[in-house]
């Protein structure tokens, strides 16, 4: 199977004052379409950096990254934004949603940028919100939703345009275990039914237990890359 994401000898070094801080120290990685991958590791191991590089939010200090057949190094910032818009969905740990937009409008926002017509946008947003269990809450603003509900809206927004890849950075970190489990089940279902590729960074053992592929990072290097048959 062709890799959806390919990283070769990727390094990333941040400059903090006078000191160079390496975040990634030569990462080689292939992620195939339809995979459900967890990146785990302690804080500072490079999980978020890796996600940001794959998502084109940041540029590597060295090495090459390909996503959906596009070499990110050859793309302008505008082209990288277009790649994210068409092929990649993001879910962050917090501050995910636009506070002045309702759940429905948050989900529609990406589609509006893609030029999807209002009627179709509306229908697809309602359908996906229903799919993540938020039917009836479409008109609520984020402040009127629980943390778990907000994350489900974020997941709905990330997948509503059927992206090739969803990058989720500690999506359950701020959720209680029940809401965390529910979110993971939704992501797994979307992975299974729609074939959406998920790459999730986490500390959470429960999330790791859900993964079919678990990549452990340590000090900016891949320490282990385990494949499993399926979740418990």
């Amino acid at each position: 199977m062709d890799a959806l994401v390919t990283l070769r000898a990727v390094t990333k070094t941040y400059r903090q004052g006078e000191v160079d801080v390496p975040a990634l120290r030569g990462v080689d990685l292939d992620i195939a379409a339809g995979e459900f991958v967890c990146l785990s590791g302690p804080s500072g191991s490079g999980k978020t950096t890796l996600l940001n590089l794959i998502g084109g939010l940041d540029t590597p200090s060295g090495g090459h990254i390909q996503v959906a057949g596009r070499d990110l190094a050859r793309l302008s910032p505008g082209e990288r934004a277009e790649l994210r818009l068409r092929h990649i969905g993001f879910v962050f740990q917090a501050y995910n949603l636009i506070p002045v937009l309702s759940a429905q409008e948050n989900v529609e926002l990406v589609m509006e940028l893609q030029g999807v017509g209002a009627a179709e946008r509306h229908a697809r947003a309602r359908a996906i919100l229903a799919e993540v269990g938020l039917a009836g809450l479409e008109g609520r603003r984020p402040a009127a939703l629980s943390g778990g509900q907000q994350q489900r809206v974020a997941v709905a927004r990330a997948i509503v345009s059927a992206p090739d890849l969803v990058l989720a950075d500690e999506p359950t970190a701020n959720l209680d275990s029940e809401n965390g489990r529910r979110l993971l089940e939704i992501m797994r279902r979307l992975n299974g039914e729609r074939g959406v590729t998920f790459v999730i960074s986490t500390h959470d053992p429960e999330v790791m237990a859900f993964a079919r592929r678990l990549i452990r990072l340590h000090d900016g290097r891949i320490q282990a890359d385990e494949r499993r048959d399926g979740p418990p």
């Binding site: 939010l57 910032p77 505008g78 934004a81 277009e82 993001f90 962050f92 636009i98 926002l109 893609q114």
Partner: peptide, 16 residues
């Protein structure tokens, strides 16, 4: 700034 960061991650361009 954070909200703008999220919007950029979603595919907004700086111009928008």
């Amino acid at each position: 700034r954070r909200e703008f960061g999220v919007l950029l991650a979603l595919g907004f361009r700086h111009g928008r």
